[in-house]
């Protein structure tokens, strides 16, 4: 469903992606792990055209991702994104945040969208916060609203960019719980994360990225329990046993 072929990307003189080739199948949950600055987030941001890429090709359901082409709107409405810092619209209520895309981009009928918006808020456990404004919510609640906002677009896949990194530790579980349920329901997900427990339990496949290349990839349990490459081994040791 999502195909990356030899994708290269530089920021000025720094090459952050040095030939990424990967694919995500429909219904698959793929976690991307790796040290910071390794290019994990950049991969996600290239998939929905928030970032351009220099060489290679990315396609979603056969449609080439080109952020300067009108077709990018098509891709963005099919591939939603959840950000590390939530990026909810503070001037709109929680429900308005959720229905913004379907109403104003997809121009769906209002009554239907509002009903779906409320149902999604209930699904992420925030039905009673529909009329609150985002700044009044905790980080974990805001991130669950962001997930509802992503789901409201009825996307074919959702990209998660370190969705729990900005949260207080005790709030991480709520967000991961919602994500796990989505995975169980068959949503196609690409998740950049440092939550190794989530990757092991929920992901079908894990990619380990370092220095702009995929160092190792494989089924989640195999890669996390028996990493083959020394860099993967070293990274996992640091993350799992920081002391």
């Amino acid at each position: 469903m999502i195909e990356l072929t030899d994708v290269h990307k530089s920021f000025g003189k720094v090459e952050v992606l040095k030939g990424i080739t990967a694919s995500v199948q429909k219904g698959e949950v793929v976690c991307i792990i790796g040290p910071s600055g390794s290019g994990k987030s950049t991969i996600l941001r290239c998939i929905n055209g928030l970032e351009s890429y220099d060489r290679g090709e990315i396609s979603v359901e056969g449609l080439k991702v080109d952020r300067d082409a009108p077709s990018i709107v098509n891709i963005r409405t099919q591939v939603s994104m959840v950000f590390q810092r939530f990026n909810l619209f503070p001037h709109r209520t929680v429900l308005e945040n959720v229905v913004e895309g379907p109403l104003f981009v997809k121009k769906e009928p209002r009554a239907q969208v509002l009903e779906r918006g409320r149902a999604l808020l209930a699904q992420v456990g925030l039905a009673e916060k529909a009329d609150a404004h985002p700044p009044q919510l905790s980080g974990g609640q805001q991130q669950r609203v962001a997930i509802a906002r992503a789901l409201a677009m009825q996307p074919k896949a959702i990209l998660f960019d370190e969705p729990t990194s900005a949260l207080d530790p005790e709030l991480v579980g709520d967000v991961l719980g919602v994500m796990r349920k989505l995975a169980d329901d068959g949503m196609t997900m690409v998740v950049v994360t440092h939550e190794m427990g989530f990757a092991r339990d929920v992901a079908d496949r894990v990619l380990f990225i370092d220095g702009g290349v995929i160092v190792e990839q494989g089924p989640a349990k195999t890669l996390l329990n028996q990493p083959q490459h020394p860099r993967t081994q070293d990274f996992l040791r640091r993350v799992l046993h920081p002391l």
Binding site: L50, R76, N87, G101, V105
Partner: peptide, 10 residues
């Protein structure tokens, strides 16, 4: 991030 969020919903 606000602009990116807007772009990400198309």
């Amino acid at each position: 991030g606000q602009i990116e969020a807007a772009q990400s919903i198309g």
